[in-house]
């Protein structure tokens, strides 16, 4: 079975992640959706790396993981800060972006 199927799988996972971001009000849930999207992208990278035969895709995926780890740390810290300040982590509440 061709590794390209993993790309399809990644597309499905990415779509689920995107839908999560759009639909869940809980910031942590949305954040997990983002993580899922990142992983889907990683899966694509690895799959293409396998198909091309080189290793650069894996290196790239590794970097993504590291950056994602850093991002998760900061993101969750922000969520905690917000929850302290507002007693809520609902995404619908911080309407200060309102024009």
């Amino acid at each position: 079975m061709s590794p390209v199927n993993f790309v399809y799988l990644a597309a499905v996972l990415f779509a689920i992640g995107a839908a999560t971001v759009l639909l869940r009000r809980n910031a942590i849930m949305a954040f997990m959706g983002v993580e899922l999207m990142l992983n889907a992208a990683n899966l694509t990278l690895v799959a293409f790396s396998r198909m091309v035969g080189g290793i650069e895709g894996q290196i790239m995926a590794f970097f993504v993981m590291v950056v994602a780890a850093a991002e998760v740390v900061v993101g969750l810290a922000i969520i905690i800060a917000v929850s302290r300040a507002r007693q809520s982590i609902s995404l619908d509440e911080p309407s200060e972006l309102k024009g």
Binding site: V21, L22, L23, R25, L91, D92, P94, S95, E96, L97, K98, G99
Partner: peptide, 11 residues
Amino acid sequence: FQSGKVRSYAL
């Protein structure tokens, strides 16, 4: 359109 709702913007 600028409802301030993150999810709308994302949409």
